[in-house]
């Protein structure tokens, strides 16, 4: 009892920066009068979860997936179908969407993870393309290119979300849950195994890590988180169509990850926020704003290849920021044949 009373302020102090960021994120939005800005914040939240889930594969295990939007799509469609056809409450639809996306992740991972490097990457690309075509053409189930309309808003134990501000708080909670659960995962045995696989797969195998099993688990987890983001998207926008889940979407996620930096839990969020805010900030330039977007990405890759916060294992605790040695991991190595 006594020790916990002494430790508590210490905990607050150690985590003050993170806690104050969360406090600002929670306190400021009600004062934003233009609801459009709140909507932008909600999208940053969705993409933060997606980029974090991609980071599990790219940043922690070193598997390059370039079709991650497929799992986002599965989550969105699963959640819409579960709540509209089966009438499941939102909480169950959310969990179901994650589980179904995770299951598809398993189906893809199980036969293909014996492949490595560029071959696995091609499989993820193909899966994304096939899924898009299925969504586009399976009229009776997905309503094809017309999409699914009037997805019901989330209701949490009877409370139905209506304003954008309420959606904002929901996605804020989901992002926090994602970060906390990933942080927990990455600091335990599981996380160490994933890091070992990324650093040197053969050596990981040689120290007794069952690399195939861990890669499959990481793939399933990444798909699960992407499914959660998809579910939220479906209930927020209330309309889903195959066009929201093209290869392009997968590439945007990769760009966010590359921009923010991978291998830690803060970089992906920063990357998602930056690449959503940049086109918004340059909206006065109209269609020329994408020049800025592309230019920023190119400059980033030239001057800081590992991304804004890449190459370091930032922790949630400020006290540990930067205390770990620099870990610059260059993904190109992965494609070279084993020497």
């Amino acid at each position: 009892m006594r020790s916990s009373r002494i430790r508590f302020p210490k905990f607050l102090l150690a985590n003050a920066p993170v806690l104050s960021i969360i406090a600002v994120l929670a306190a400021v939005p009600p004062f934003i009068t233009n609801m459009y800005y709140v909507q932008v914040l909600v999208f940053i939240g969705i993409y933060a979860i997606l980029t974090l889930s991609l980071n599990l594969l790219n940043g922690y295990v070193g598997l390059l997936s370039i079709g991650h939007a497929a799992f986002y799509a599965i989550g969105a469609y699963a959640s819409a179908k579960l709540s509209m056809e089966l009438g499941l409450p939102w909480v169950l639809a959310l969990a179901g969407a994650g589980a179904i996306a995770g299951f598809f992740g398993y189906l893809i991972a199980k036969p293909t993870l014996r492949l490595s490097g560029i071959y696995l990457t091609l499989v993820t690309l193909g899966f994304n393309m096939i899924l898009f075509l299925v969504l586009q053409n399976w009229m009776s189930f997905t309503n094809g290119p017309l999409g699914i309309m009037d997805v019901p808003p989330p209701s949490i134990f009877g409370f139905v979300l209506s304003s954008r501000l309420q959606y904002y708080y929901l996605i804020l909670a989901l992002v926090l849950l994602t970060v906390l659960s990933m942080h927990r995962l990455m600091t335990c045995r599981f996380g160490r195994a994933l890091t070992a696989i990324r650093e040197n797969e053969l050596a990981a195998e040689a120290t007794g890590v069952d690399t195939t099993r861990y890669k499959i688990q990481a793939f399933v987890l990444a798909a699960f988180y992407a499914g959660i983001a998809g579910s939220f998207y479906a209930h927020f926008v209330k309309y889903i169509s195959p066009d929201s889940f093209t290869i392009n979407e997968s590439f945007i996620l990769l760009a966010m990850l590359a921009f923010g930096g991978q291998g830690n839990l803060i970089g992906p969020i920063v990357g998602a926020a930056a690449l959503i805010l940049i086109p918004e900030a340059f909206r006065p330039l109209q269609e020329y704003r994408m020049f800025v977007y592309g230019g920023v990405l190119i400059v980033m890759m030239l001057v800081r290849r590992q991304g804004l916060l890449g190459g370091r294992s930032y922790s949630l605790r400020w006290t540990r920021f930067d205390s770990a040695p620099a870990r610059i991991y260059e993904r190109g190595d992965k494609f070279l044949p084993e020497g």
Partner: peptide
Amino acid sequence: LEARRLFPFL
């Protein structure tokens, strides 16, 4: 292992 194969960035 041959050529030692440590985890380079740990």
